[in-house]
Amino acid sequence: MTAMIEIDGLDVTFRVKGHEVQAVKGARFTVGEGESYGLVGESGSGKSTILRAICGLAPVTGGTIRIEGRPLGPRRDKAFASKVQMVFQDPYASLHPRHTLDRILSEPLAIHGIGEHDRRVVAALESVGLPASFRFRYPHQLSGGQRQRVAIARALMLEPEILLLDEPTSALDASVQAEVLNLLWDLREERGLTYLMVSHDLAVVDHMCDRMAVMEAGRIVETLERPDLLAGRFRHPYTRKLFEASLAAGG
């Protein structure tokens, strides 16, 4: 299996008002081509920060991030954007409120000098199951699930190989969550995408991912394969707590 993403001893440190917040401490894991890898863990444990660090949106203070074997420098260039795209945790904040879907979806094309704007926007809407008639709507005219589809469509505009998904369904109700997970499932099959997916919901990660890392307070405390989870083969007390609480919750 070729390694698409390698996180090697990653540290992220925010500096605020003279003190330091070590949001990620020595994280290490590898995601293979076409694989879906899950990041689960406590709220505030650093999951979103790892995704943001990959995108160059968080202060990396140690370690290396490699994409297809090549270490990333301090800046992300255009080539990075056409290889790696992120879907953010907050579906309300991540789409520009005063831009139509047409504009939201065609912006990445314009930046990268890609033509055939009309055809590609319509195709993108279709690929996430939205009618072409939505093209000139604004985000506030969509339901939460439709907005999340648009965020996924936007991430796919440049035909990336890797999607970083930050809680892609936590703001959605059960029926819409199922629709979005099915969409992600199909896109992965059709396009051979690699997913790195954050979720606080163990059942969602178990459904989508074959391997996962469990985080607590900035550290990866355990990495698991899917059968380990089901069989209860884990060592760390936090994993056990999460697993037991998830089962009790009906997951």
């Binding site: 059960a174 199922a178 009906g250 997951g251």
Partner: peptide, 20 residues
Amino acid sequence: RGLLNCLPRIGGPRGHLPVL
């Protein structure tokens, strides 16, 4: 009833989830 069926379960079947 439909909503209850849409939820993934740990160790549950993979692929498409039922939708409403």
